[in-house]
């Protein structure tokens, strides 16, 4: 019942966003497309790191596998998109095994560092090994696009994000979602409660990679190009992490809020700060947001909601 009530809010959000192209400029829509892709990546991070507490500092690794797989398939072999994109998703899921294996032995800081190391390895490998295939430092460009125009791309990215969002949001409400969060709280106690944490972790990694794969492949075709410097980049990782964290890790709704907030913040600052100081202010705002509310907006809204409810009851 509670789920149905909350689903109503998803519906309001969905309808609202679908009507948006009627009122805003195509320029704004193009910006929102980036927000929606960022939201997909942040949700992928969230279902792994926010839920299970295995913090990934290497999510661009997964996104990069997806992007490069579909880019190379379409660029060199002319494979149609309806084949190359699913292939990219599968490749990403296979690639996530590289994250999963260290997760069997390490956790916390060490795990985060291994994932960062994987990202850096791929960054260097993509430039040096077989530059003919990967395009080397310059990457591949002129990739086929799925659809053209701001409005269709807006709907495509929103639709994918919305479906993934609702799906994951429903999932964390099941017993499976609860079981995943026991790993974050106390993995040993979870095991001694009879939970097969290895299987649960594998599921979280695969699901995260699935979402990252879809996002990475679509994003690459939206941009029409891919290059190591754009994907395996600390600032890209930074955006994903921060979107999830300042929105509220582990909540799925939070990362979506965070992604819109970050993207719009950067755009909002543009007219006032045209120069490089924009990134400084942007970074400083995110640092302050994380400093004062490490649990994110989701938590703040939740608390406000409770307060309002309490006030309502008192009257």
């Amino acid at each position: 019942m509670g789920v149905l009530v909350s689903l109503r809010w998803w519906l309001v959000f969905g309808v609202g966003m679908c009507l948006l192209p009627l009122v805003v400029s195509t320029g704004t829509l193009r910006i929102l497309v980036f927000a929606q892709f960022l939201a997909i990546f942040a949700m992928s991070w969230d279902i792994l790191s926010g839920r299970t507490g295995y913090i990934s500092f290497g999510h661009p690794f997964l996104i990069g596998i997806a992007g490069y797989t579909t880019a190379m398939l379409t660029y060199h072999l002319g494979v149609p998109l309806y084949f190359s994109i699913p292939a990219a998703v599968v490749a990403t899921m296979i690639g996530s095994i590289f994250f999963f294996i260290p997760a069997l032995r390490t956790r916390g800081t060490y795990f985060a560092v291994v994932t960062l190391a994987f990202m850096e390895v791929l960054y260097h490998l993509m430039q040096v090994v077989q530059p003919k295939l990967t395009g080397g430092t310059r990457g591949l460009s002129g990739l086929p696009t799925i659809i053209l125009g701001a409005v269709p791309n807006y709907y495509l990215s929103f639709g994918v994000m919305f479906v993934i969002g609702v799906g994951l949001w429903l999932l964390i409400r099941t017993r499976l979602g609860t079981a995943l969060s026991t790993i974050r709280m106390d993995e040993d106690a979870a095991r001694s409660s009879g939970l097969n944490t290895t299987k649960l972790k594998l599921f979280a990694f695969m699901l995260s990679a699935f979402v990252a794969g879809i996002g990475g492949a679509l994003y690459t075709h939206y941009l029409g190009s891919i290059a190591p410097r754009g994907i395996f980049d600390i600032s890209f990782l930074f955006s994903i992490l921060i979107a999830a964290l300042i929105g509220g890790a582990g909540t799925i709704v939070g990362p979506i809020m965070g992604a819109y907030f970050l993207t719009l913040l950067l755009e909002f600052l543009r007219p006032y700060l045209p120069g490089p100081e924009r990134y400084l202010i942007y970074g400083a705002i995110t640092l302050l947001a994380y400093y004062y509310a490490p649990k994110g907006f989701h938590n703040i809204f939740g608390l406000l909601w409770q307060r309002l409810g309490a006030l309502g009851r008192r009257e």
């Binding site: 913090i55 916390g108 600032s235 930074f238 990134y279 640092l287």
Partner: peptide
């Protein structure tokens, strides 16, 4: 919370990078 320290220091590093660029 070591993870929070790591995340906040990572943000700080990115902010410092922006400052240097500026």
């Amino acid at each position: 919370d070591p993870i929070a320290v790591e995340i906040s220091t990572l943000i700080l590093a990115v902010v410092m990078q922006a400052l240097i660029v500026m």
